[in-house]
C-alpha cells in the first residue's frame, strides 16, 4: 500500500530530514513510526500525502507513483488518505460538526448522507454530544479526537496519524489506539507516528524506528 524506495528529503536550508529510507507497508497493515524529536517522523508522513516532495527516491501509495503526480492530482491523493495532524489543524470559526463535515463537503457528498457520516464519526470518538460546540471550548484531548473523527469520516483506505495521543492521558491514549486497531480490522492501512514507547510496545505491532533521518530497525 505504501512503499518507500531510497527516499531522501533535504529541506531548503540544507538539512537532511530523511536519508535513504526503504520500507513497504502492506495493504491492511498497522505499524508505528517512532524516533526522537526531529528524527523525521512528520516529514515521512508529509511525503506520503505530498505536503512535501522527496529530494530523491520513489514513493508509491496504492497504485500511484507519487513522483508522477502533478499539482492537480494532489487533492485526489489526499482524499484517499485520512490524516490526524500533530497540531490538530481544526478550524475555530465553526462548530465541531462543521469541522468534521469539511472533507465530505470537499469530496461532494450529499448533505444528509454527509451528516449521517459525521455523527457516526463523532460517535466513534465519543463526542456525539459536543457536535454544536466550537473546538475552542474543548480540551486539547477532545480536540485531538475531533481531528481523528475528521480523518476517518470519509472512511479512507489509509490512515496516517502524527502523535495522535500527544495530549491524552494513558487511559484515553489506550482507547484511541483501540479505535485505530478497529479501523485496521476493517481493512484500513494505518501508520502512526509516536514516541510513546510504552504504548507502542503494548500494541505488539510492527515498529519503524527513525534516527536522524535513517530508518534503523524495521520490525
Amino acid at each position: 500500500m505504501i512503499q518507500f524506495n531510497h527516499v531522501s528529503k533535504r529541506y531548503a536550508q540544507g538539512h537532511d530530514a530523511l536519508k535513504d529510507v526503504n520500507f513497504t507497508l502492506a495493504t491492511g497493515e498497522m505499524a508505528f513510526l517512532t524516533g526522537h524529536s526531529g528524527a523525521g517522523k512528520s516529514t515521512l508522513l508529509k511525503l506520503i500525502m505530498l505536503m512535501e516532495r522527496p529530494s530523491a527516491g520513489q514513493i508509491q501509495v496504492g497504485e500511484q507513483q507519487l513522483n508522477a503526480l502533478g499539482r492537480r492530482d494532489i487533492p485526489y491523493l489526499r482524499r484517499s488518505i485520512g490524516v490526524v495532524f500533530q497540531n490538530h489543524q481544526l478550524l475555530f470559526d465553526r462548530s465541531v460538526f462543521d469541522n468534521i463535515l469539511l472533507p465530505l463537503q470537499i469530496s461532494g457528498f450529499a448533505p444528509d448522507d454527509a451528516a449521517r457520516r459525521v455523527r457516526a464519526a463523532l460517535d466513534k470518538v465519543g463526542l456525539l454530544t459536543k457536535e454544536k460546540m466550537s473546538p475552542l471550548a474543548l480540551s486539547s484531548g477532545e480536540q485531538q479526537r475531533i481531528g481523528i473523527a475528521r480523518a476517518i469520516v470519509h472512511k479512507p483506505k489509509i490512515l496516517l496519524a502524527d502523535e495522535p495521543t500527544g495530549n491524552l492521558d494513558p487511559q484515553l491514549s489506550a482507547e484511541i489506539m483501540q479505535l485505530f486497531t478497529q479501523f485496521n480490522r476493517v481493512g484500513t492501512t494505518v501508520l502512526i507516528a509516536s514516541h510513546d514507547i510504552a504504548l507502542i510496545r503494548s500494541m505488539g505491532r510492527r515498529v519503524l524506528t527513525l534516527q536522524s533521518g535513517r530508518l534503523l530497525s524495521d520490525g
Partner: peptide
C-alpha cells in the same frame, strides 16, 4: 487498492454519490 479511474487520479474510497 482502488480501481484506477483516470490516468493518475486516486479515487476516494466511498463514492461521493448515491450508491
Amino acid at each position: 487498492m482502488d480501481k484506477k479511474r483516470g490516468a493518475v487520479r486516486v479515487q476516494p474510497t466511498p463514492k461521493p454519490v448515491a450508491e
